[in-house]
């Protein structure tokens, strides 16, 4: 099972590497020209292009790039003058902090909201939660971020508006990033719990004299979690993409600001390194989600074994 997923993962990584290779080169702008600035002569640009290996035919560049990637060599950042992956790994912890905090917020808040709403579908709490989650999902992240800064940093002066240093700095960007994710988890949990609460085994649980809370937490929740786990796994990947925008709003020194700089400066190696790293992380998360899914559902566990 896991072996097969890993094999598929290798193909996915190859695809991601190829797509990003084409996209960075298809985007207008010449790295050498951008780096040397408007005063550079044609000879200077040509020399730098040759040094970077960008004068070779595209196919030759591609084969060399894949070969390097296989040896875990992700190239030099011509702007930073050091290995691209080194720069990426330097920024990774900040992004991981941000996405993990956002995930924790989204899972806790989303599960709680979804459980309360789903245990009494059509009730007052359910209607408020449903309306709120639609709102949360529709607001663009950058707008939510700016609104939170206006309210909590500039208005109430409770939290820093940007930068890093203390845990307080983490609050606004993490909450901003968690907003749409919370909505997704809450809506999915709600529908999943509502569905589970209609199952005959819930009636059986009630017939044992359990309280509604015991029925909900002891019988409905476990089965409701199965789809939620999958979505959390998949969405964490998307969250790293969302982090790019949030990091720029809050001047958070993670992968997001690094990759925006790199794209602006046509720093191919860095863009490729970031992309491959995120693709790898998403792949691992998906496998983890699949394994958890199997752990949670004994019916699939049996199938997987046989």
């Amino acid at each position: 099972m896991v072996v097969r997923r890993l094999l598929i993962g290798v193909f996915v990584m190859w695809g991601a590497a190829s797509v990003i290779f084409v996209i960075v080169r298809a985007a207008p702008g010449d790295p050498a020209a951008v780096f040397l600035g408007p005063d550079a002569t044609k000879e200077q640009i040509a020399r730098l292009t040759a040094t970077l290996g960008l004068d070779k035919p595209l196919f030759e560049q591609y084969v060399r790039y894949l070969g390097d990637v296989l040896r875990l060599d992700f190239g030099e950042s011509y702007r930073l003058g050091r290995p691209a992956m080194e720069a990426v790994f330097e920024r990774l912890p900040a992004t991981v902090d941000l996405t993990l905090t956002a995930t924790a917020i989204a899972v806790v808040a989303g599960l709680a909201l979804g459980l309360v709403a789903g245990s009494r579908p059509g009730g007052a709490v359910d209607r408020v939660v449903s309306a709120a989650t639609i709102a949360l999902q529709s607001f663009p992240t950058f707008w939510v971020g700016i609104m939170l800064v206006l309210t909590f940093a500039l208005g109430l002066r409770l939290l820093p508006s940007a930068g890093v240093g203390t845990p307080a700095h983490l609050v606004l960007p993490a909450v901003t990033l968690a907003f749409p994710f919370t909505a997704i988890v809450a809506r999915l949990t709600r529908s999943s719990v509502t569905e589970s609460m209609r199952e005959p085994y819930v009636q059986t649980a009630r017939s044992k004299g359990l309280s509604e809370r015991q029925v909900l937490l002891g019988h409905a929740l476990r089965n409701s979690l199965i789809p939620v786990v999958t979505i959390v796994g998949l969405q964490m990947g998307a969250l790293m993409g969302g982090a790019v925008i949030v990091e720029n709003v809050f001047a958070w020194p993670g992968l997001g600001s690094l990759v925006v700089d790199a794209v602006a400066n046509r720093d191919y190696a860095v863009v490729q390194a970031v992309t491959l790293l995120i693709a790898g992380i998403v792949m691992v998360l998906n496998i983890v989600a699949d394994v958890l899914y199997i752990r949670l559902d004994p019916r699939i566990r049996t199938e997987a074994r046989s």
Binding site: E199, P200, Y201, Q203, T204, A205, H219, R222, N223, I226, L296, D297, P298, R299
Partner: peptide, 8 residues
């Protein structure tokens, strides 16, 4: 089958 909880 329906009346028993599948994951317990």
């Amino acid at each position: 089958l329906a009346a028993l909880n599948p994951s317990i």
